Computed example of a mutant assay.
Amino acid sequence: MRLTELSIKNMKLPERGQKTYWENGFGVRVSQGGRKSFVVMYGPNRRLKTLGRYPVLSLKDARRKAQVILAQRPEEKDLRVTLAEARAQFLADCEKRLRPSTVWNYQYYLSKVEKTYLDDVGLEDFPNTSHAIMSAKVFFNWCIRHELAEKNPFSFCKVRYGTRDRVLSDDEVRKLWTYDFPPFSDYVKLMLLTGLRKGECAFVVPGDDLLTIDGEHTKNRRTHRLPITPMVAELLPRLEYFNGFSKAKYRIDREVPLPHWTLHDLRRTFATNHARLGTPIHIVEALLNHVSGTISGVAAIYIRHNFLAEAKVAQLRYEDFMSELLGKE
C-alpha cells in the first residue's frame, strides 16, 4: 500500500499485538494501543530497524531515512543496536527514577552478558534465577518502549518469588566484616552478631547486661531482649542514629561485590550458623524473637521461661565461632 498521512491516520488497530503496513521495505508498525512507528526492512537477512515514532518523526523524514538505508545496503552490524549502548541508556534512566539498590541489581546482571548486539541476547545469557530473569524482562520492555528492540526474548518467562534461602558463606561474612564505612558497617556487624532486623538496630537500648528493643519497634510488637556479649559491647559505643540504609547498601555492593544479598539475609545467616553450632531451635527462636515455632499451643501457655541465661551461653559460643572465623585473637 502507498503510505500517506491520511492512510497512516486511518490505519486499523490490531486486536492483539502489532501489525505492520508495508511499502517496498518501508513500513508503519501499529500496536493495539495505538502507537505507530516507522520501520525499514533491509539486508539479505531481512533485518528490521525502527526509524522513529509517528508523528514525532514525520512521514517525509522517515521515508528519506528508509531510502538512504535501502539504497546504501550497509552491513547489518552498522545498524544494529549494541548491548553496551542500550544498557547505558537504560541504567541512566533508572538512576533518575529508582532506588540505588535496584539500579545496582540491574547493572549486576546486565554486566554479565557478553554479547555485542542487543538482538543477539537470549535466555542462555542470564542465570535461571528470579532476580536475573526479572532484570532481563524489565530491561527489554524498556528497550521496546524506547524503540531499541523489536521483541522481548524473556516475555514468556514466568518469575516466581518464593521464600528466600540466601545464606552468606564464611568467606562472604569475612569480606563484609572488614568493610569500614561507619556507622553503616557497624550496623552490619551488629546484625551479624545478633540477628536483629534492620529496623530494630536503630532502636536498641543498652542496659547492664541486656539489649532491649521496645515492642513498638519489633515486627511482632513484643519487646525483645538480648544478652550483651563482648563483641556486641565493643560495637555499642560506635552506634549512632542512621537512616541511610539504601544508599549505604548500594555503596557496599559496589565496593564489596557479592552475589545478590539483602540485609535480611544476615539474619538468616545468623540463625543458620547457630544451627551449625548445635544451638537448640527454641533458643534460636528466642534470639530471633519469634513468637510461634517449637513452643506453641498448650506449651506456650504454660512455659513462660524467657531463656535469657541459655541465650547468653549460646551467644558466647556463637561469638567464639565468629572470632575464629574472623581470625580474631
Rank of each mutant, 00 (worst) to 15 (best):
R166I: 09
A275K: 15
A271C: 10
Y318I: 04
D320W: 01
V56T: 15
R73P: 03
C201D: 08
T194H: 02
Y54S: 13
K312G: 06
E234K: 13
E85T: 13
L6W: 02
R222W: 00
H146S: 08
Y187V: 13
G244L: 03
K189F: 00
R276H: 14
P230H: 12
G162T: 07
L91D: 03
R254S: 08
S31F: 00
K249C: 08
S323T: 12
E147W: 03
L148R: 15
E172R: 10
L288Y: 07
P182N: 03
K158E: 12
W104I: 05
T129Q: 08
D171I: 13
S169P: 00
D78H: 11
R267F: 01
P55F: 10
S169D: 04
I144G: 09
Q32D: 06
L51G: 06
H217W: 14
P237V: 09
V291K: 13
L258T: 02
D320A: 14
L176T: 06
R80F: 07
S101K: 12
P55Y: 10
Y250F: 10
R238G: 04
R2A: 09
D214Q: 06
T262G: 04
K12V: 15
F90G: 02
A92G: 04
E5N: 10
I213R: 11
N152M: 11
